[in-house]
Amino acid sequence: MKVADIAPGTFAEISSAKLAREKTAVMESLEDILYGSVAGVTGKYIEYPFDTVKVRLQSQPDHLPLRYKGPLDCFRQSIKADGVLGLYRGISAPLFGAAAETSSLFFFERIGRETIYTWGLCARDQILPLPALWFTGAFAGAFTSYVLTPIELVKCKIQVPASSSVDGVVNNKAPGVFSIIRDVYRHEGLKGFWRGQTGTLIRETGGCAAWFGFKETTTKLFYALNERGLKNKSERDALRTEALPLWQQAVAGANAGVSYNFLFFPADTIKSRMQTTAIGLRGAQTTFLQEGKALWRQYGLRGLYRGCGITCIRSAPSSAFIFMVYDGLKRHVPL
Rank of each mutant, 00 (worst) to 15 (best):
E235A: 15
P245F: 14
T311F: 10
S92V: 06
R195M: 05
S37H: 02
G283P: 04
R67W: 09
R240K: 15
L19M: 13
Y117I: 12
K215Y: 13
L133V: 15
F106T: 11
T286M: 11
Q248Y: 07
G307V: 08
P317K: 06
R110G: 01
F50P: 00
T287K: 03
V325G: 01
I180V: 11
P8K: 08
R302H: 15
G253Q: 01
R314D: 06
L225A: 10
V333I: 15
K155P: 00
P8M: 02
E109Y: 07
I202A: 00
D327H: 05
Q197C: 02
E13Y: 03
N255Y: 07
G280A: 02
K293H: 14
R306I: 09
P334G: 00
A132C: 13
F135E: 03
F107I: 05
F135V: 05
G97I: 03
P317C: 04
W211R: 04
C74P: 03
D167P: 07
L130G: 06
S315C: 05
V169A: 15
Y299W: 12
I313E: 06
K18V: 15
V333W: 14
S259H: 05
T118G: 03
L281M: 12
I111V: 14
F214Q: 06
N172S: 14
L130W: 04
D73R: 01
E109M: 12
S259N: 06
R89L: 11
L87I: 10
K271W: 04
I14N: 08
